[in-house]
């Protein structure tokens, strides 16, 4: 059954899926990869973003426009989350990783339940005219509902990457994790830099959420299946490497697409975790150095 068109279609689907995963992982790349805050609630924030977009589309708005509108409230949400986080931990002289993991774990559950109480536990989806059909090129069939979100991701990633590498406030974010003291000597307040970074990270969740709900219907607990993917992407890309995350995300996307085409779609949730575990087991030194 190894026909070339199935293989090709799987690879193309994988690349597009991977691109979407990269946008899911973008915020975590900032919080965990750069700030070293293990925000395991990020996938849930993405799902919250998806529900935000869903709500606005119910009022007739385009999902992409809805996502752009969502940037501000989600940025503010991130600022509030960080303010809470730092009030609890950083004032006590450095956060305990395990406690902050637990905090974000609790937080993600609370968000999930609130979503499920507010929207019900059924699947929700958006319907827009331009994501109904498929683009056909020769033997390739590319549904627009996958293509459009997949194009959204590189744009967002490029924007964030340009911001981080080209602007002075972006540079401050990259510097804050390593040289907190130098930053305060330079007259910048590390706490406000981190708060800003956390805000941006959370704002990317609404774009990722728009992408996710365009790809397929979503339920409040969908975040759990993304945790493996997003952490695999951030960790294996090398902590803090945002362009690298796109590459890893596409590899994971292709692996998943191949597994669902040739084995069974029900196996695909385990793929990213398997890749992550293998990566951790094979390259502990490399990861250790990067994660310090």
């Amino acid at each position: 059954m190894l026909s070339i068109d199935i293989l090709l279609n799987a690879i193309v689907t994988g690349i597009l899926l991977g691109s979407v995963y990269a946008s899911l992982a973008l915020g975590l790349g900032i919080t965990f990869g750069i700030l070293h805050i293990p925000n395991i609630a990020h996938p849930t924030l993405v799902v919250a973003g998806a529900f935000f977009v869903y709500t606005l589309t119910q009022w007739g708005l385009d999902p992409i426009v809805a996502a752009v509108i969502g940037l501000v409230p989600f940025y503010l949400l991130g600022v509030v989350l960080y303010a809470f986080y730092s009030a609890v931990f950083e004032r006590k002289g450095g956060a305990n990783v395990l406690q902050s993991l637990t905090l974000f774990f609790g937080l993600s559950l609370v968000i999930e339940i609130l979503l499920s109480l507010g929207f019900g536990s059924e699947l929700k989806s958006v319907s827009v005219s331009y994501i109904g059909s498929s683009l056909k090129i020769g033997i390739l069939t590319v549904p627009y509902r996958l293509l459009i979100p997949a194009l959204l991701a590189p744009v967002t990633i490029a924007a964030v990457w340009l911001y981080l590498s080209r602007t002075s406030s972006g540079t401050a974010i990259r510097a804050v994790a390593h040289e907190e003291r130098a930053l305060s000597i330079a007259g910048l307040n590390p706490a406000s830099v981190k708060r800003h970074a956390f805000g941006i990270a959370t704002a990317t969740a609404v774009i990722a959420g728009a992408a996710l709900i365009m790809v397929g219907p979503i339920e409040p607990f969908a975040g759990r299946f993304q945790i493996g993917r997003v952490f695999a992407i951030v960790v294996l890309a090398g902590m803090g490497s945002i362009p690298g995350s796109l590459v890893i995300a596409i590899i994971i996307g292709i692996a998943e697409a191949l597994v669902s085409s040739y084995l069974n779609p029900s196996w695909s949730p385990g793929v990213a975790f398997a890749i992550l575990l293998l990566g951790l087991a094979l390259r502990p030194q490399g990861l250790f150095g990067a994660a310090r």
Binding site: I40, L101, V235, F273, L277, P284
Partner: peptide, 20 residues
Amino acid sequence: LTLRIQGVYFAIATLGLVVV
């Protein structure tokens, strides 16, 4: 698989165990 690295990775890997 995970304990030789930091505790964060252990925690993340355990999240994966359930899914797998």
